[in-house]
Simulated assay, not measured.
Amino acid sequence: MSDQPPNNDDTETQTKPKPLKILRNIAAAAFGVRSRKDLNESGDAGKFRHYVIGAICFVGLFLLIVNGVVRLVLSQSS
């Protein structure tokens, strides 16, 4: 009765990954620690931009932490 075709889009049936899972995947990818199970699950769901934004934030935070540690060590050695 409706002119619209049935919606067979699989994106609605996929579960969205939780932010913590996205962060865990980004951290695991950054340090190269991946299990076979996580490797298969990581790319199944989630938007690309979420991973890009998370990776940029992760790298920025990592650099700030490394910078802080280096400054602390250098200030203690003088």
Rank of each mutant, 00 (worst) to 15 (best):
S77E: 08
R24V: 02
R36W: 04
N8T: 13
L72K: 09
G43T: 03
I56S: 06
P19E: 07
P5E: 13
V66S: 08
K18S: 12
F48I: 14
I26V: 15
F58I: 02
D3C: 04
L61V: 11
V59W: 06
F31A: 05
G46V: 01
G68V: 06
T13Y: 06
R71G: 00
Y51W: 03
K16Q: 13
K47P: 00
N40G: 02
D3P: 03
F31K: 07
K37M: 05
P6Q: 05
R34E: 10
T15F: 02
K37E: 11
T11N: 08
M1S: 15
A30F: 11
L61E: 09
N7T: 07
I26S: 01
A55V: 04
F48P: 00
K21R: 14
M1L: 12
G60F: 11
V69I: 15
R34P: 00
G68A: 11
T15Y: 01
L64D: 12
A29Q: 02
F31V: 11
M1A: 14
G43S: 07
T13G: 01
L39F: 12
I26N: 01
F31M: 08
Q4R: 06
N8A: 07
R24D: 07
C57F: 13
M1G: 15
A27M: 09
G46R: 02
P6N: 06
G68E: 09
G68P: 02
V66F: 08
V66E: 10
T11C: 05
D38M: 03
G54T: 05
V73N: 03
S75H: 10
N8V: 12
G32I: 04
L74W: 06
A55Q: 03
T11R: 14
A27P: 00
D38F: 01
V66P: 00
L23F: 08
V52A: 13
